[in-house]
């Protein structure tokens, strides 16, 4: 039936480096379960049974978790706002708006995040007296905003053309149609993609350790410089990131699943 096909079409999937469980896989043993079991077992064995030096390393490293999550959460909000405007700019009727957002996307995608981060903190930060935390959030927001713009553009364009036509035919302005009809539907469509970006960003947030922010990685590095326990420390740092990422990617997968079920 035409209307079912149409409703099914309002779905986009964007994949990145985040470890996502293969959709539809329902076996007892899947790659996600093996990995999380391994990671949790390794952590528990080291921290609880082997104890020192791991217990101490762990207590040092997890102190960086609030900062890692804080930077990521702040930057995802910034990136969503920037991405929304970029996405709208990409589909704008005015050529100037399309060009501006297009140039922004090209520019940002062409420069490595680490370089952007260093540029904003060490170069612009000097000029504007930026602290590390705002610099990190701004850099991550600007960088991910460009990718988020693509997600919003694809999301907006995935809404059937008839929705805009129906809204306009009722007398709504283009702005009203976007606000009340198109964007609420877009938000639902892009939510899983934003979840995936959150995971990717959480991993990339480890780059902020170069600008002296005490996130998970930075705490680990500081600990190594005091104790020279590099293998033990970085193994734990990796495990902590791995477990966080695995749990989050499962949550995103569940969210995607729910949305698929609720569709229509």
């Amino acid at each position: 039936m035409a209307e079912i096909a149409q409703e099914r079409a309002t779905k986009i999937s964007i994949h990145d480096g985040a470890l996502l469980p293969v959709k539809g896989e329902r076996r007892i043993i899947d790659s996600w379960r093996i990995t999380i079991a391994f990671a949790v077992m390794a952590l528990v064995t080291l921290v609880i049974f082997a104890k020192e030096p791991y217990g101490q390393i762990f207590s040092v490293v997890v102190k960086g978790a609030p900062l890692t999550f804080g930077v990521t959460a702040g930057a995802i909000l910034g990136a969503v706002v920037i991405g929304l405007f970029t996405g709208l700019g990409q589909i704008a009727r005015g050529r100037a708006l399309r060009l501006i957002s297009g140039v922004y996307v090209e520019l940002i995608r062409g420069i490595p995040l680490l370089v952007q981060l260093i540029f904003i903190y060490f170069a612009l930060g000097r000029l504007f007296q930026l602290d590390g935390l705002p610099a990190a959030i701004i850099a991550l927001s600007i960088c991910y905003g460009a990718y988020m713009g693509e997600i919003f553009r694809a999301g907006i364009q995935s809404i059937p053309k008839g929705q805009m036509e129906a809204a306009m035919a009722l007398g709504l302005t283009r702005g009203q149609a976007l606000r009340y009809v198109i964007l609420p539907q877009t938000m639902r469509v892009v939510l899983p993609a934003i979840g995936n970006e959150f995971i990717a960003m959480l991993k990339d947030s480890s780059l902020v350790s170069v600008i002296a922010l005490r996130d998970i990685l930075r705490r680990g590095r500081e600990h190594v410089s005091r104790t020279f326990l590099s293998l033990e420390t970085y193994a734990l740092v990796a495990l902590v990131y791995l477990i966080i990422t695995l749990v989050l990617s499962k949550l995103v997968a569940i969210m995607e699943d729910r949305m698929n079920k609720h569709e229509g």
């Binding site: 035409a2 409703e7 059937p160 129906a166 035919a169 639902r188």
Partner: peptide, 11 residues
């Protein structure tokens, strides 16, 4: 206007 595909707002 009434459309072939209804175009109701699903949300």
């Amino acid at each position: 206007m009434v459309f072939q595909d209804f175009n109701l707002f699903p949300h």
